[in-house]
Amino acid sequence: MSFHKEHELHTRRKGRNIGLGLTLVALICIVFGLTVVKVTRGDFEPPRGQVEGN
């Protein structure tokens, strides 16, 4: 297997692709962070009465 020579398009769009990649990583971090905050605050726990009723 041989390595291809990098297409000119990839060089030209390097900045755009890195920017998009970093944006997606930031989005993942934000969703993860929000999940951690909401779980630790108990936002997803059922109301107390409902748990006792079970």
Binding site: H7, R12, G15, R16, G19, L20
Partner: peptide, 16 residues
């Protein structure tokens, strides 16, 4: 088509 756009201004991340 990729090569035909080479001479046109290319959008960078900053343009978006």
């Amino acid at each position: 088509t990729i090569n035909s756009t080479v001479n046109q201004p290319e959008a960078g991340f900053g343009d978006y």
